[in-house]
Amino acid sequence: MAAPRLNPLTLLAAAAAVLVITTAASSWAFSLTVAAGAVALSAANGCARRVLLAGTAILAPFWLSLLVMHGLFYPEGRTVLVHWGPARVTAEGLGFALDMGLRTSAFVLVLMLFSFSIRVPDLVAALATLRLPPQFGYVLASTLMLAPIIAARLGKVRQAQEARGLVVGKGIRSRLGAVRLQMIPLVLGLVHDAGTRAQALDARGFGRPGPRTTYRKVNDSHAQRGFRVVALLLAAVAVVLRIAASYLTGGPA
């Protein structure tokens, strides 16, 4: 994998710039290119499966609602392709849905690619070099790592209950019943863990004022720093061009 060699801030800057430029470009062809590019990069990176799975879970309902809303009920639609009573499928509506859908797909896929390409501790270490308060990094890291911790804890509670006779059936009722049984032990367990962790963090100097250092050396280079500046400049230029274009054409395009 090539990506972990890059500084997480470089990846963050690249992702942010691509998203800003995609928005400013406001073109379905551009959005499609970006989305396809994100998928291609994730394939090269070995995380295509996860990116596509997570992306589909988010985007499928979104695309469906877009097509229903704008495909059938686009108020400014003139070119009617088919119609049933008040519902009219218009070319303009489909075009709008396609444009919005592709732009959002580009957003989601780029963000998924970013989040699956970095290691959380790397991002926290990189953010520390920006002189953000360490508590910010800790909260960010523990939030990003919370899902696996909750999943592990939930698995333990479920095993303990099954070992004492809980049978989780395949039906939705049985599953919901099991979730209800597991919620209180899960939350109480997490709160208990957090209490002990606070004492350990205190003793290990987490509450200390004063400067900190970071052990994890995050790769960085002049080239990467230069790239980040250029990426952010390009994003800014795209925004300026977009505003200028709307101004010249006398309104939003």
């Binding site: 290691r119 959380v120 501790p121 926290v124 360490p134 800790y138 890291a141 523990s142 790592m145 911790i149 962790r197 350990a200 963090l201 290990r204 100097g205 987490f206 200390r208 004063g210 400067p211 900190r212 250092t213 970071t214 052990y215 994890r216």
Partner: peptide, 19 residues
Amino acid sequence: SAVRGTVEEELAFGLENRG
């Protein structure tokens, strides 16, 4: 600390906080 990804980073956590 539960937020460090490797053993060496966990060992260094207290040192980082000391600067």
